[in-house]
């Protein structure tokens, strides 16, 4: 009897230690996204749920059309209604639609769907405006690595083979804007995301890795030029086929975005979808709801 008990207890111990106890994960998490752009009309709010992996790869698949959406902006409550033709999209009441997002205001967004309730609080940054853009185009194309075959691993230099060289024009762009005054929040608490988006796509992310087409950085670390304005300089590449080919004329969208550090964390973590999902600031759900200020200019570079 004692032997049998011992054997049974041993088997229980073996099973309890050996069985894989990984817990199943939830599905259908509430996803909320909205960007309250300082000085712009009240934004639309998108509400959806995460979709199963076998679902079609469309945004409409997980859209939630029966959620209760409420925005409290500077103490004023604004109800949102679902847009009939666009599943998952919510807009403010027509009476509030003409209202703009005041800089430095605080906000609270509540979304309720079934038993799930998501909330986000935040603050609107001061407005940002691009004051000047300086573009520098080199006189001739230079050689560069073209094909994205360099797979730099963490544990070793795992180098691809047969990467090909090509020719690019590296275009240098400087953007200037005014520093926010202390009464407008000061630059200490803000982050800046800059982007140079040429219409012409380049074929290699490796070049982007070694150039500087975009950047996320604290606004307090941005250089100040001789005019007392903040200035950021980046570089993007324009490919050409031959060395004697003239610089291709193209459109360039230059964007600058001011936000708090939560959006900056989100922005810094959204660029590698295969490895990770972006960091969220939504309580009770996922997604991003943030106060931002965007300014962009579109120029023709030639």
């Amino acid at each position: 009897m004692r032997v049998r008990t011992t054997v049974i207890l041993s088997l229980v111990l073996v099973c309890s230690t050996a069985c894989d106890t990984v817990q199943p994960s939830r599905e259908g998490i509430l996803v909320v996204e909205a960007f309250l752009d300082a000085g712009r009309p009240l934004p639309a709010v998108r509400v959806s749920r995460t979709q199963t992996l076998s679902a079609p790869l469309t945004r409409e698949e997980g859209a939630v059309s029966d959620a209760l959406v409420e925005l409290i902006l500077s103490g004023q409550t604004i109800d949102y209604k679902a847009v009939p033709d666009t599943a998952g999209l919510y807009r403010p009441d027509p009476l509030a639609a003409l209202q703009t997002v005041p800089p430095l205001a605080t906000f609270l967004l509540r979304v309720q769907s079934d038993s799930d309730r998501a909330t986000v609080t935040g603050r609107i940054p001061s407005r940002i405006t691009i004051e000047n853009v300086i573009i520098s185009v080199p006189e001739e194309a230079i050689e560069a690595i073209l094909v994205d075959t360099l797979d730099i691993g963490l544990d070793s230099l795992n180098l691809g083979l047969d990467a090909q060289e090509g020719l690019i024009y590296p275009v240098q762009v400087s953007v200037e804007w005014m520093s926010p005054s202390p009464e407008l929040g000061g630059q200490e608490e803000y982050w800046i995301e800059t982007r140079l988006d040429p219409v012409t796509d380049f074929s290699s992310s490796i070049i982007d890795f070694f150039l500087l087409p975009d950047q996320i950085l604290p606004e307090s670390t941005v250089d100040v030029d001789f005019n007392g304005m903040l200035i950021w300089t980046g570089v993007y590449a324009v490919p050409v086929e031959t060395a004697d080919q003239p610089f291709p004329e193209h459109d360039l969208k230059i964007s600058i975005l001011r936000s708090d550090r939560f959006f900056a964390r989100y922005a810094a973590s959204r660029n590698d979808p295969a490895q990770r999902e972006p960091l969220s600031n939504v309580s009770g759900g996922i997604g991003i709801v943030s106060g931002i200020s965007i300014d962009s200019v579109r120029v023709i570079v030639k």
Binding site: S25, R26, E27, G28, I29, V31, E33, F35, D37, R46, S48, R49, T50, Q51, T52, L53, A55, L57, R59, G62, E193, R195, D197, S255, L257, R270, P273, R276, E277, P278, I286, G287, I288, I292, I294, S296
Partner: peptide
Amino acid sequence: VSRYALRDPVSGEDTFFFNR
């Protein structure tokens, strides 16, 4: 375990992410 999309505030493009 699931998938969702978020829209970029600057470009307006959707990007799909996995939920882990």
